[in-house]
Amino acid sequence: MSQTREDPDRALMARIEARDADALAALYDRYGGRLLGLAQRILGRGGEAEEVLQEVFLFAWKSAATFDPSRGTVRTWLLIATRSRSIDRLRSRRSSSRPEVRSLEEVAVNPAAPDDVEASSSDREWETLCRAAVGDLPDDQRRALELAYFEGLTHQEIAARTATPLGTVKTRVRLGLMKLRERMRPYLGSGSDAS
């Protein structure tokens, strides 16, 4: 995994495993803004997104030992932890039939001031590649992926939401993700090296 070998994240994870709080602070400074942005996109700007962020870093603190670099990058590990916790909360909101707190407004009025957030050049490169990769997807594939990723919808729910046959939705999700994989090749880990 040549990509991550140069990655300072792995050294951070090792220090975190050894209970070095400065290392966790460094991880937070690197990814906190990115992860909070993701949680807010899913949950809106209320306190819940911040709670998710707190949970994720506590998780990183306590479970650094479970991070396996051969199975993905630290960034992916953190993003998945953030996304899944956010979606869990979103789903429990729905099932408790509380009104949808997250309004379009909340989502749209999250103007991010990206300049306000310090990002290393490697993070910027990653972000640029991600944006381009998603931007180049056919609209229907991108839409299906976004509904799944940010709203936690199932295949069936996406089909209903977009008035599309179920089989087509499944195909769109698969093809869309496959295309992202091709574009994200430079960031893929051992899987691509091995195969």
Binding site: P111, V117, L180
Partner: peptide
């Protein structure tokens, strides 16, 4: 599965990064 998980994070970058409140950092640490 591993590759697609990695690839799926491209979607996360669609959500812009935001600056977390300073108090949150202190609370977490």
């Amino acid at each position: 599965l591993l590759e697609l998980r990695e690839a799926s994070t491209a979607l996360a970058a669609q959500a812009p990064a935001v600056r977390p409140p300073d108090a949150l950092r202190a609370r977490i640490l």
